[in-house]
Amino acid sequence: MDVLINVFVALHIIGIASLLGGFLTQMKAMGAGTARFTPAMLHGALTMLITGIALVGLNQADGQTVNNVKIGVKLAVLVVILALVYVKRDEERVDKGLFGAVGGLTMVNIFIATLWV
């Protein structure tokens, strides 16, 4: 079971890398007002959602304790990110504030995952 959990953790990290990487590559465009949500950002958020749900189930099935409040907060932040990226995915330009919010929420999600014990 540990190997399967570690595979899903790796996939979860790949999802966050895709989402954050898509944001970071658009930082210069955000300054110019021409940033847009890339397909990699949408796919990264979806990967995080699916693998996160799988990780909760696998950890509970393995008898490990899961901090449901932490998972709930992370899920709420991810749903907001996913909704913003999904709704604005076809627009050629995204407002700086909206684009910055997605990057900020992504980093908040990372900090919640790593710092909340």
Rank of each mutant, 00 (worst) to 15 (best):
E92L: 01
F8P: 04
D95S: 00
L4A: 09
L75M: 15
G72M: 02
V7E: 05
V108C: 01
Q26Y: 05
H43Y: 09
T47R: 03
I16D: 02
I13Y: 00
T47E: 07
G63W: 05
A101D: 14
R93G: 00
L20Y: 06
M27F: 13
V94S: 00
K28Y: 06
M41A: 13
M41N: 10
M27E: 15
K88R: 10
G63I: 09
G21H: 00
T114H: 03
V56L: 11
G21K: 01
K96S: 02
L115N: 11
F111K: 09
T47W: 03
L4C: 08
I13C: 04
H43A: 13
T38C: 07
V85S: 06
E91H: 06
G57I: 08
I110A: 05
G97W: 02
G52H: 08
L115V: 15
Q60D: 08
L84F: 09
L98Q: 13
I112F: 04
I110N: 00
V9Y: 03
L42K: 15
D95Q: 01
L58H: 05
G31N: 12
V73M: 08
A54R: 06
F23R: 04
F23G: 06
D95R: 00
E91W: 02
I16T: 11
Y86K: 12
G21I: 02
A10K: 11
V79A: 14
L11G: 06
M41K: 11
V102Q: 11
F37D: 10
A17S: 14
F99T: 03
N59K: 15
A83S: 15
L19W: 01
L4G: 12
L82C: 13
K70V: 04
L75T: 14
